[in-house]
Structure formats: C-alpha cells, structure tokens
C-alpha cells in the first residue's frame, strides 16, 4: 500500500475574483491530517477537491490511493453545511449510509452525539449545532476508508465537544480509517492530528508533522496557525532568553515553555499583567546600556504579577 492517500500536483481552482487554490502541490498520507488556515485560505476548497465535488481548473488529483481489495466505501464526508438530505430523519441518515454488516450502529452513534432524542427529527427542524453533529455522525456511520470533515462540530457547545471528539477518535481507531479535517481551532488540530497542512491565500505554506510545527515553528506566522507563540529573533533571544537558556537564533516558544518567576534580583521589570484564563500576557521591561527594551510574554501562569515587580524568565 502506498504511504500516500492523495497526490495533488499543481492544482488550481479558480474563484470569482482570486484563485481559491493556486498551484497546490501536496501529498496527504494515511492517519489524521488537519488542514488549517484563516478564513478564505482555501480549506473548504481543498476538501471539496479531495471529495470530488470541485474539479480543478488545472493540475491533477490522484487518490484516494487505497489498498487493493479494500471493500469499504473509499471516501465519505461531513461538509461544512452538513450536506444533509431534507426528506430523511436523523436516524434514516445514519441507516442509509451504514454498511450492511454494521446495520445496528445507528443507536450507538445517536447516543454518542446526543441525538437520540432527536432521532425522528428532519434537518429543517434542527439547530445548527445538531445539524453539525448529525453530519459528523453520518460520516462515522458510513465507516469509509477515509473521512473528510470540514470544520467538524462547528456551532456546537464547547463544553460537550471533547466527548464528541472522543467518539470520532474511537471510530478512527476502531475502523483504522484515515481522517482529513479542516479546523479554525488550534487546540483541535494539535490534539487530534499527526500531520498538518497550513493554507494561506489558496497556497500551501506548510506541510509536515503537527508536533514539529507546534514545538519548532519555522516562523512566527506558521507558528500562529497552532495558537499563541512567543517569537524571539536573534537579537531578542540574546536579550531575553540568554543566559537563562543556551539558545541561539530565532526560536518560537509556546506559552507553556516559559515561566515568569518573581525574583528581587531578576533583571526584568513587570510593566503590565493580564490574565485570560488559559494564559497570561505580561509586558516586561529590560534596561541595558541606558536602552530600555520592552516585550510581551505569553505564559500559562495563574499567579498575578504587579507592575514594577522584579522577575526573571525561566525556560521549561
């Protein structure tokens, strides 16, 4: 079996004013791949091309490249608008797509996605969050070799989302299928994917392992695809990180890698501190040779810091 699921070569998809995809050459492997990018970057367009809904204006798309004799449905999806059928109930959506040898999987999926009480509802009678869950549940019910999900679980309750992601994770593991999903949420990309594709203005700007991009982002812009990052260029590294760590050159550090410790003998002074719940934003001052440097540092700390307090920076 090939390591690659899809091979895209010089794919171009035209839009009304600008190309939705511009000269995209990419290979997507087995496993779980996240597609990230800001609004209008081309995530949905790329997924639509992989799903076969949109045909590129130029270039070639090979895939999905599956093992010979794989009897599963090659690809199934959960598009952004659900792609649900208005004349079928929630239960019927699952029953229509499920394979014959898994004919009783609907009840479990209805329970997993908290849709059991809405089993007889039609899509027109459901909320956006319920529609989003049904789209994902239908994709899982189809038990395909590859699942494509465009912003899965969008518009759903954040408190319940981890449980639904767990259901997706379980299904991927149980059926040994691949998953390609797009998301706006860095947490989902980091938690769920092993590979990542970053898109910007219809072009691929990064493709590689999610962990690599998270821990060693090559640039600030790429690092920000996976959330907050403290970026230090060579000069900043010399000022703020040395001699705390023997680092050189530009480096991107996630908030959990840095710690600001109150220290009377510390070389930095707190200018301001703001706590956002999951992270804190602290502005530090450093005076050297009558020049004052200022920098905002993102950390995970909860302990409040006061202005003019002396601190030191610790690298975890």
């Amino acid at each position: 079996m090939s390591d690659e699921l899809w091979k895209l070569a010089s794919v171009r998809l035209r839009g009304d004013s600008v190309d939705r995809l511009a000269d995209v050459s990419l290979s997507i492997g087995h496993g779980v791949t996240a597609i990230v990018g800001f609004s209008g970057a081309g995530k949905t367009s790329l997924l639509n091309v992989l799903a076969g809904m949109d045909t590129p204006d130029a270039g070639t798309v090979d895939g999905p490249l599956l093992q010979a004799g794989d009897a599963r449905l090659p690809v199934y999806w959960s598009p952004q608008d659900g792609g649900l059928w208005p004349h079928l109930s929630v239960r019927e959506h699952l029953e229509v797509v499920q394979p014959e040898d898994f004919a009783n999987s609907a009840d479990k999926l209805l329970a997993d996605f908290d849709l059991a009480e809405r089993a007889n509802a039609l899509p027109g009678q459901m909320s956006r969050g319920e529609l989003s869950r049904l789209g994902v549940a239908r994709c899982l019910a189809a038990r395909p070799a590859v699942m494509l999900m465009d912003e899965p679980l969008a518009h759903t309750d954040p408190a319940r989302r981890p449980a639904w992601w767990q259901a997706i994770r379980n299904a991927v593991r149980a059926t040994e299928c691949s998953l390609v999903f797009s998301t706006h949420e860095p947490e989902a990309a980091v938690a769920e994917s092993t590979s990542i594709v970053c898109l910007e203005n219809g072009t691929v700007v990064f493709k590689g392992a999610t962990r690599d991009l998270y821990h060693q982002p090559p640039t600030l812009e790429l690092g920000q695809f996976l959330g907050a990052v403290n970026w230090f260029d060579e000069e900043a590294t010399a000022i703020w990180l040395n001699p705390a760590a023997e680092l050189s050159g530009p480096v991107g550090l996630r908030p959990e890698r840095l710690e600001i410790i109150p220290d009377e003998g510390g070389q930095f002074t707190v200018s301001s501190f703001r706590f956002f719940g999951s992270f804190a934003e602290t502005t530090l001052n450093f005076t050297c040779d009558s020049t004052t440097h200022e920098r905002t540092i993102l950390t995970r700390q909860c302990e409040e810091l006061c202005p003019l307090q002396r601190v030191r920076l610790n690298l975890k």
Binding site: A51, M53, P79, G82, G83, V96, V97, P99
Partner: peptide, 22 residues
C-alpha cells in the same frame, strides 16, 4: 438543493450492496 447534498449521495454510490443502491 445545495451541491453538498448531491455529493453526499454521489459518494455513497461508490459502496457495494444496499448502500450503493441507496
């Protein structure tokens, strides 16, 4: 009838047995 609804049905036709006919 958005294209995604049609595509969701098109993808099923790749399956075998009842699912393909559905």
């Amino acid at each position: 009838r958005p294209a995604s609804q049609i595509q969701s049905a098109v993808m099923l036709t790749g399956g075998s047995g009842t699912r393909g006919s559905q």
